[in-house]
Amino acid sequence: MNLAWLAAGIGAGITIVGGALGIGKLAASAMEASGRQPEAASAIRVSMIIAAALIEGISLFALVICFLLSGK
């Protein structure tokens, strides 16, 4: 068996853990903030989406590396 496949699988798993932690923390804070101040909800949503996209971008970098590894 190819060790690169093992590396790709483990890497993808760790990436998902990191990305999920980041986006989960972000969403929790955004929910709390818009609960405290409902009139600012739309502004909070926009900045939440931007931050989520940045976190997602970083985790996708790692996933692309895993994907390249799986083709080895």
Binding site: A53, L54, E56, G57, I58, L60, F61, L63, V64
Partner: peptide
Amino acid sequence: FALAIRLFANMTA
């Protein structure tokens, strides 16, 4: 670079 990878990876995945 992040813009390109984000769109590409999302649509491919």
